[in-house]
Write a protein that binds this DNA or RNA. Structure first.
Lengths: 147, 147
DNA sequence: GTCAATCCCTACCTATAAGGTATGGAATGG
DNA sequence: CCATTCCATACCTTATAGGTAGGGATTGAC
């Protein structure tokens, strides 16, 4: 399995949206600047996340993106799977099943690993993360301010 | 983070060794045939695992590899880290710390994910897996059966 | 009606790596 | 001495990550 920059950037972007939830569309360009994500790359990520139903796009001037449902109802798992595809740790541990053996002891490890990862991701919502981020930003004496 | 064929093959190989623990060196060629791993590729993996202190090599005819300590004292984490390097999920979640912010909410997710994965890997030993595999091979009554 | 901002789409590029293969050497048992 | 085995190095091929480029289509503001 792999977690790439797509997930990392995508999660940052959606936390950014979550912090602004309810305040109208947020432009991708703004997100890119605040989160220091290459703008054109972020656009691609938003396409995937829109197709996955996580965000809604508003076209035209003053347009942008907003979360398509409550931040508490979007999990990190949603984000990761939207950006990386289904979560599976190795060829063997996946649902495909390796042709090596009907059941192999190694496969059980990979399966349990996936489940553990899935559990962490599925039990963490954007709402919670947005709350943490806001707390961090207001307590830390840094320039990383989220209005 | 990434789990590649190296871990998958390497774990299969060490389970193979664990099943034969105490019976003298086992040739890489034999392991490759039984586990259906490209032989020369497996050799490379054994180099990494020897350097990590997991296996001991016996050179010359009738030589081979054996686990350098009890199978119960070698965990999947040992194997994975020997073959893939330190377990870390993303650039941000690592010890390096991203320059994005002193602390970011996203980073805590990646860190918790790594910990979850590490926990699964660290609590699973080759001895246990060898036992499961033996049970599977001898009648499909292993403790970790998948339907 | 124009214009700038914004999302949308397709194509392309480049460096890295995964996943091997090939060749030859060095040790060792029979 | 010689087949077997590990050891070391170098090389290859393909896929992918991580972008960049260049334009369209929509819309709000003026």
């Amino acid at each position: 399995m792999r977690l790439t920059a797509r997930s990392e950037y995508g999660l940052l972007a959606l936390i950014d949206l979550a912090c602004r939830y309810g305040g109208g569309p947020v432009s991708a360009r703004g997100v890119a600047e605040r989160q220091k994500i290459p703008p054109k790359f972020l656009e691609q990520l938003f396409v995937s996340m829109r197709q996955a139903g996580l965000v809604t796009a508003v076209r035209g001037a003053r347009g942008g993106f907003e979360l398509s449902r409550d931040p508490m109802a979007i999990t990190v798992l949603d984000v990761v799977e939207a950006l990386e595809g289904p979560l599976q740790p190795t060829q063997c541990g996946g649902g495909g099943g390796c042709e090596r053996s009907p059941v192999c002891a190694a496969g059980t490890v990979w399966t349990r690993a996936t489940e553990a990862l899935r559990d962490v991701f599925a039990t963490t919502s954007l709402g919670t993360l947005a709350g943490s981020q806001t707390a961090i930003d207001s307590g830390e004496r840094g320039p990383h301010r989220t209005a």
